[in-house]
Amino acid sequence: MIDKVMKDLEIRFPLLQLVREQHNYLHVKVDKASAIDAVLMAKTSLGFKTLQLISTVDRLEENRFQMTWILENYGTTSILLISADFPREDCIVPSLSDIWPAASAFEREIFEMFGVSFPGNPREGEDFLLEGWKDIPPMRRDFDSEEYSMRVFGERQPREHTDPRQYIGDIVGEWNTPMGAKRARKEKK
């Protein structure tokens, strides 16, 4: 089954990379112009009818986003990963939400987390996880999470020692043993 899929894809698209991870698990890399065509072809003629996930990886050093569409064929229990590289600045990827309605949710999430825009998604720009986010998208690797946390949520007070007795010793004495509770009550009097 997977052999046929490999052949079909090889004929139609210039494959940059083709890895057969397991006997029913294929990872294909295409260029960005033919990415959506490959996904659509996998759905219409190769039987990969289920979209499992759209994921994005931020390759900051190479200045690209790696988009991956994970498709599954339940009839043959085989999985096809189609990935493509997109430039990092003003990244635009065509939307698949009219093919798979579920893709809309993934695309909204990616838009929020990475700033990748999906023209054609009717619900693009709606809040998905973050409400009222004003900074750069938080899953981009040039976003400094710790600095943001310290700036917005404030300094937390880290412990100077790691000996738990320093912090919970008294409380354990007071509350956790019956004798301790009695002693604490006596001392209070």
């Binding site: 999470s145 946390s149 949520f153 937390r156």
Partner: peptide, 14 residues
Amino acid sequence: NGGMYFDSYNTLNV
């Protein structure tokens, strides 16, 4: 104090 999520972008600390 934030625990293991102390540097998370959306989890409040105190």
